[in-house]
């Protein structure tokens, strides 16, 4: 079966960040890096969160020198503990879905008072590759999909892809048919 992935419909996306924060909160809760794994991307052509497509032949997994990225259970996953932060995966990803980030592991509290400062530097963090893991550690699926207020985000399961492709084939028959008929008239 093909890998599953989450994708956004830019016609519905409000750029409201609910998915981003839900992502961060879910991963923080399961003890992973709290950095969000999807990125609201504004462009004159539209706005939507961009995240991992869970490629079948994932270039990130191919380039990783320490095998920290594996394809398992229909997903492409980074083992954050194994990652050495070499950034190769982030560079080869054709979607910009991988970021390097070093938020604090939840076990180390943020120093008090450093809510924000212009030139803050935070000690004690480990920088690793951060990407979508379809919230595999939570029981009710990707949290971004769950909270999106306009239902712009959708989880496309592997078997669904094949069904969708079939539907496309059927509609393409109709298109050809209409073209031929027009010519015949």
């Amino acid at each position: 079966m093909l890998n599953s992935f989450v994708i956004a419909n830019p016609n519905r996306c409000l750029g409201c960040y609910t998915c981003v924060v839900a992502c961060s909160a879910a991963h923080r809760k399961s003890g992973l890096q709290a950095a969000p794994r999807l990125h609201i991307t504004y462009s004159p052509r539209g706005t939507m969160p961009v995240q991992c497509r869970h490629c079948e032949d994932a270039p990130c997994a191919v380039v990783c020198p320490v095998n920290a990225i594996e394809i398992r259970d229909g997903m492409v996953l980074v083992k954050e503990q194994a990652c050495i932060g070499c950034k190769m995966c982030a560079l080869v990803c054709p979607f910009g879905a991988i970021t390097m980030n070093g938020t604090f592991p939840p076990s180390i509290p943020k120093p008090a008072g450093q809510v924000q400062s212009l030139l803050a530097w935070l000690a004690g963090q480990k920088t690793v590759a951060i990407k979508c893991d379809l919230c595999c550690s939570s029981t009710d699926g990707p949290q971004c999909v769950k909270v999106c207020p306009t239902k712009a985000l959708q989880l496309i399961a592997g078997d669904q892809v094949e069904r969708l492709i079939k539907l496309k084939r059927i509609s393409s028959v109709a298109v050809v048919d209409s073209i031929l008929n027009e010519e015949g008239e």
């Binding site: 960040y17 981003v20 924060v21 961060s24 709290a34 809510v115």
Partner: peptide
């Protein structure tokens, strides 16, 4: 969670 996405 909010400050993290909009820190500055």
């Amino acid at each position: 969670p909010l400050d993290q996405v909009g820190p500055k």
